[in-house]
Write a protein that binds this DNA or RNA. Sequence first.
DNA 1: CAATGTAGGCGTATGCCGTACGCTGTCAAG
DNA 2: CTTGACAGCGTACGGCATACGCCTACATTG
Lengths: 211, 211
Amino acid sequence: MPRPRSLTPLQIAEAALAVLDADGPGALSMRAVAARLGMGTMSLYRYVEDRSQLEELIVERVLEPVDTTVPDGDWKQQLLALSERVRRAVAAHPNAVPLTAAHRQSSPSLLRWSESVLGVLTAAGLTGRARVVAMRAVLAHLLGALELEHRAPLAGEGTRRMAALPAEDFPLLAATARDAAAVPSPEEFRLGFELLLAGLDGLVASQARSG
Amino acid sequence: MPRPRSLTPLQIAEAALAVLDADGPGALSMRAVAARLGMGTMSLYRYVEDRSQLEELIVERVLEPVDTTVPDGDWKQQLLALSERVRRAVAAHPNAVPLTAAHRQSSPSLLRWSESVLGVLTAAGLTGRARVVAMRAVLAHLLGALELEHRAPLAGEGTRRMAALPAEDFPLLAATARDAAAVPSPEEFRLGFELLLAGLDGLVASQARSG
DNA sequence: CAATGTAGGCGTATGCCGTACGCTGTCAAG
DNA sequence: CTTGACAGCGTACGGCATACGCCTACATTG
């Protein structure tokens, strides 16, 4: 017989994400989110245990749109496409990148995604320790690539600063930074991921021989 | 003719890192660091512009011990060894991992390290866009692997939780998580990095053909 | 040795933050 | 129509980074 809730978790997540998208990570606060929902600050705590749980809601809202069904193609195309989907979902909310990395473990969507990736790796012939290593390598590369793409883009400030480094101390770094500005992010991602795929190819072949 | 400074930047960095190592990221504050130095809080501001600059000092203190001279061996062994050195330096201060990722761009030591890595890649035959992609792939993998190793270790809580996931929804994830506990971190790092090296091998070969 | 003025050291205060606590009013069930 | 569980929220607390301005130590200069 209690009074009914007036908000869904999804509405909370949307409001928080809206604050984050509009005003940046520094502006994300319980006060700001509550204000955007038209509530008092403390009312938000009827819906969320604490700030960390609010962040989890945001992350799930970011990752939920990821299609986790296994796409067509050979296993390499499948892995690339699955990873590309995560990349796209995250790219829609660049301000949420650090949160996404921090709370990925609590996201049901990312669990489903991981299960799909493992399905692809298993179908490719990997099991046991090799499968563990492959899965973690895919995760590591994806996490690192997202971090680089959004916090240190090839076309960004950091690259420009490196390009301006003294050539006597950092000849290669300066030259490479100048080349870097011409590589678009999606291409960087695809090419980088294909390096990993080539490595996985070797792993699959060696496990096929020994297994 | 002014009064002389009583502290060096290095002493500041050591104090801050000591706080971080001892009491965790949540305990790192201007107050705590100043207290450890035996000063009033505001005195710290005579030495650093703001908290962000304090964090940069910490990061440089973490990365400074990295030997950036190019080791012996073929280019793959060289890349692995260079990356392993960063991994070891960072592993000495696990609480500093997020800071290290965040402020890596400002670290002179990491710039020197990058120059060395580029030297190895260049000697292996890479230039232009291929070199850009290779460098960033190494960085991405390293960043991601550090994040995974320290915030989601294979032997840790998260893995245990995944191993306990319902087998009807996440059969592969649960099984893989059980296998994962048996893979030690150093081995995970080496095997994962070798996947990338195998991929780079292909890139080197293809650039050799086309160049 | 005395005067000087730069800059070190720091007390105070402001405005953020997350959140504990307890009140008030609503509204569905009985 | 009563009722009590709970939504909503005002207030308050402790901690944070940090702006500002005071006092004073001390290397330099005369």
